[in-house]
Each structure stands twice: as structure tokens, then as C-alpha cells.
Design a protein around this nucleic acid. Structure first.
Ligand SMILES: [Mn+2]
Ligand SMILES: [Mn+2]
Ligand SMILES: [Zn+2]
Ligand SMILES: [Zn+2]
Lengths: 143, 143
DNA sequence: TTGCAAATGAGAAACATTATCATTTGTATG
DNA sequence: CATACAAATGATAATGTTTCTCATTTGCAA
């Protein structure tokens, strides 16, 4: 729960404001956490931070464009965001409990580049989501 | 443009109706075509078929559940559907023109299974979308 | 302090999708 | 073929998510 410094935002070309600091702080206090705009909004209100939903949407998009956050389009229609941890990774989403687990597989990554190159495409990015069920006896992430 | 037989729907557990036959016919007349509900609705109207948007949404979901169509969640917030061709494949989406190209890579598929199994997940399905630009001199799919 | 562009927040609007319900249609039966 | 009735349809309302508008507030530099 270390508060982000205003310089973090300045470096990203965004001026330091209360809502932006609160939102960034929320993501930094929960590593590997994937949250929708609604999730972020409710969490901020629960923290006693007074913020508007429109601001949450605006700031999430700005943070995405600034490279501070990464946006995901899982099944379900709503965007979810996570802190940009620098290292690209893909996701396994548990269909029982909604838990999201991260992974990186070098072989998959390189095959993707190869496939795109062979077909004459310059890759911007990609999304790989595996939808699955935990096999653990009692799913530890019930929602 | 071969009209689908009512048996196709009966076999899928759906009774044969005019809107269902028209929608299935549209997908069968355009192999490898990825369409949103709005796309389908407009195309039917253009064909002179009188149909309601609500019916299009309902039928697309029913066809997905019956295994006749496959749903995709590309970037952009709306679902797109394609005919279930029996063979699973993944997609490269051109960011310039929206053209969708299909591919299958056995190495990627097997690595995915391995990754999920190692982490204790039973895979339901997955989605892999590569977002890229055509490198061809003049993108042949301008929208 | 003051000034002002940039950011915010409340609410309206836009967009995609689903729900409601009166009417129509497919099909099984006589 | 006529009838009956559950299932399907379509107009419209409602919902859920995201963006837009604009009056007010705020961060920051002079
Ligand atoms: Mn992640
Ligand atoms: Mn396809
Ligand atoms: Zn789980
Ligand atoms: Zn293209």
C-alpha cells in the first residue's frame, strides 16, 4: 500500500490529480489484480474517496494509453484492467469462480510471431485467454 | 448460396422457422465470414427479409448454444459470430481494415493444454486473437 | 495570490444486449 | 384441410456498459 508519487503520473505525461493518484494507488496496492471500471469505482467509494464514474472511465483509458495499465476483454462484455507489470503475460480464467491466473510461455509467443510473419502481418499485440475450471478439490476463489 | 434444409435446424434441436433459416442461410452463403448481430440484421433487411433485431440476437445465441455458430469477443465491445466449421482455429485481425484471417497452429494448441494442465485447470476453451497490420502494399480489405 | 487551462463530476446520451408481452407461426392432431 | 396450442417472433421497454456535455473545481505556474 505504498502511495504512488506524483512523479509517476508526470513521467507518464499526466498531471497529478487526486482521482488519478487514488486510482493508481488502488492498482498498486493489489498486484496481479484485474478490475473493471465498476470494480474500481466501488472500491474507491468504499475507501472513502469521492469520485465520479465518468472520471474512472476516463482515467482508466488514459492510463492504458500511457502504458500504466493493460486492458483485457474477457468474456462478459466489460473491460478489465491490471497494472502494467512490464512483462507481457497471458491469462487463464476460472469459469467457476472468476479467478484469473497469469502465465507466460515462450514457445507460444514465438509461434505467434512466426504465424503472423508467414502471412504478411506486422503484429501490434495479441490476447490469449484460456477459460477453464480449477481442478483443486475446493476452488479457493469462490465468488 | 445453397439454402439450408429445415433438417439442419431440427438436428440442432431447433424448430424450423423463417428467421432461423434466413440467418443460417446468410452464414452458409459466406464462409469464413465474421458478423456482428447488427451486421446480420442489416444484411437480412438488405436481402428483403423482414426480421426483428431482438430475434437476431436470440437466434445467434441459440445457434451458438446449438454449436452451429462460434462467438468471438474481439476488441471493440461487440460479439461477432462465424459458422462453426468443425475445425477450431484462431484469428489475426487487421487493425487497418478489420479483415479477419484464420490460422491453426498445432504447437500453440498443445502448449496451451500443457500450461493449463500444469497449473491444475481443466480447459473449456480459449481465444487467441492477434491484432496486426497487413504488410501488403495496398491492404486489400479497406473498410 | 491570481489566472487559466486542464480535470472533474453529475447527468444526459450513445451503444450493445436482454426482457416483456401481445401477436403470429409451425406443426401435430382430428 | 381445419383446429389448437406451444413455441417463436417483433415492437418496444429496460438494462448494462461506456462515452459525451458542460458547468464547476483544481493543479500549477507566474
Ligand atoms: Mn494479468
Ligand atoms: Mn474464424
Ligand atoms: Zn476457481
Ligand atoms: Zn488489412
Amino acid at each position: 500500500m505504498d502511495k504512488p508519487k506524483p512523479e509517476h503520473l508526470k513521467n507518464a505525461g499526466l498531471k497529478s490529480t487526486v482521482p488519478r493518484l487514488n486510482i493508481l494507488s488502488l492498482f498498486e496496492s493489489r498486484q496481479e489484480c484485474h478490475m473493471s471500471a465498476e470494480d474500481v469505482y466501488k472500491q474507491l467509494l468504499a475507501n472513502g474517496d469521492d469520485v465520479g464514474l465518468a472520471t474512472v472511465y476516463r482515467v482508466l483509458t488514459q492510463f492504458e494509453q500511457a502504458g500504466l495499465l493493460v486492458r483485457h476483454n474477457f468474456e462478459g462484455g466489460k473491460s478489465v484492467f491490471e497494472l502494467n507489470q512490464g512483462k507481457h503475460h497471458d491469462h487463464i480464467v476460472c469459469l467457476q469462480c472468476g479467478h484469473v491466473e497469469e502465465f507466460y510461455d515462450a514457445a507460444i509467443e514465438s509461434r505467434q510471431k512466426k504465424v503472423a510473419a508467414e502471412r504478411g502481418f506486422a503484429v501490434h499485440d495479441h490476447s490469449l485467454y484460456i477459460y477453464a475450471d480449477c481442478l483443486k478439490k475446493n476452488c479457493p476463489h469462490k465468488r
